[in-house]
Simulated scan of single mutants.
Amino acid sequence: MKRSPGARLCATAAIGALSLSLLTACSDEGAKDSADSKASSSSSSAASSSSAPAAKALTTAELEKLLLAQGELKGYKSESGDDTLPASKTAVKTDKPACDPLAWATAALAPGDTDANASNTVSEDKASGATVQPEDFADAFDVDMTFVGLSSYEGDGAEKAMKAVSDGVTACAGGYGLTAEGETTKVTKVVAEKGAAKGDEAVTFAADVDMDGAGTATFHTEVVRKGNTVATFYTVNFAAMTKGGDMGAIPAAVVDAQVAKLK
């Protein structure tokens, strides 16, 4: 089902906290395994295996089949991101190249060097529970929407993509300027967060975004690698965006279900 023009407008504004002028209108650390097969460790990032055979990238069509489909996660609805998400990396840029992977991850684009990329949106299906009946504009947008991106890489490309994100969290700690869909905004701070161990490797970070001079909002992003596939997750609550503050955690159920589908 197609979103209403208002929903598409708000979703476009939400991506990486882009187009902040629309907000009013929308009123570890990766652990490493050494060559010694006896060594093992656990952290927020699962260890990657250096002995794995050379990986072959999945195609975009194959990635699309791995995205969460409607009906696969109870209490959530999955929809194409075609009318809400940027079509390519050329539409999302920062003023610091090292920060590009962070911006791409928030926009469900591949954080690494690959053309194999697929995305969708997974949102709370409040209507299915029949407990929430939106009565006004604000209530209609009081829903968490998670932008999900999948990308696949040849050889060690997935590991390099994860490193680019991890390095970006450090390099961009002081913030960066972001331009997307012709709109600009300012990320004022980036900090690493400890996420749950998922897949083979995970990087989680939070970014504070200037709300056009009206305080800041904190958005959370999780990037997970499983084999040579990288999944990105970024959650926005449209109603909360108008108030600032913390946008809330990425739903664990969405991450668990999506990572479980990856090969």
Score class of each variant (00 low, 15 high):
Ala116Lys: 05
Asp246Glu: 15
Ser51Lys: 11
Ser41Gln: 12
Leu262Ala: 00
Gly157Asn: 07
Asp82Arg: 04
Tyr76Gly: 00
Phe137Ile: 13
Ala252Leu: 04
Glu64Ala: 11
Val132Phe: 04
Gly199Ile: 12
Ala192Ile: 09
Leu68Pro: 00
Lys93Ile: 09
Val223Met: 01
Asn237Cys: 01
Pro5Cys: 07
Ala46Ile: 01
Glu135Asp: 11
Val122Ser: 05
Gly213Ile: 00
Val132Gln: 02
Leu150Ile: 11
Asp36Gly: 10
Ala207Val: 10
Val191Met: 13
Val236Ser: 10
Thr90Leu: 00
Glu193Gln: 11
Thr216Cys: 00
Asp156Cys: 02
Leu23Ala: 04
Glu183Arg: 06
Ala98Lys: 08
Ala55Gly: 00
Asn228Gln: 11
Ala173Glu: 15
Ser44Gly: 15
Gly16Met: 05
Asp95Tyr: 03
Ser45Gly: 14
Asp200Gly: 08
Ser21Thr: 10
Thr84Ile: 14
Arg225Lys: 13
Glu124Lys: 07
Ala118Trp: 02
Ala138His: 14
Ala217Phe: 08
Asp256Asn: 10
Ser43Thr: 12
Val187Lys: 04
Val259Lys: 02
Leu102Tyr: 09
Ala257Asn: 02
Pro251Phe: 07
Phe147Cys: 03
Asn117Glu: 05
Pro134Thr: 14
Ile250Phe: 09
Glu201Leu: 09
Ala207Asp: 04
Gly244Thr: 06
Gly71Ser: 01
Glu64Val: 06
Ala105Phe: 03
Val254Leu: 00
Gly75Trp: 12
Leu73Gly: 03
Gly149Lys: 07
Gly81Gln: 02
Pro53Val: 12
Thr170Met: 06
Ala249Thr: 13
Ala140His: 14
Leu262Gln: 00
Val259Gly: 04
Trp104Cys: 06
Lys198Gln: 10
Leu178Ala: 02
Cys26Gly: 07
Thr121Lys: 06
Ser41Glu: 11
Asp28His: 10
Thr146Leu: 10
Gly174Trp: 05
Met1Arg: 05
Lys189Met: 01
Glu62Arg: 03
Ala87Gly: 02
Leu68Asn: 00
Asp136Leu: 12
Asn237Trp: 01
Ser49Ala: 11
Asp256Leu: 01
Phe141Met: 12
Ala61Val: 00
Ala57Gln: 04
Ser37Pro: 12
Pro5Ile: 10
Thr59His: 08
Asp115Val: 10
Ser166His: 13
Ser37Gln: 05
Arg8Trp: 08
Ser80Phe: 01
Asp208Thr: 13
Asn237Gln: 01
Gln258Thr: 04
Ile250Gly: 02
Ala196Thr: 13
Lys160Gln: 11
Ser41Leu: 11
Thr94Met: 01
Ala138Arg: 15
Leu67Asn: 01
Cys99Lys: 02
Glu201Ile: 06
Asp208Met: 00
Ala108Leu: 08
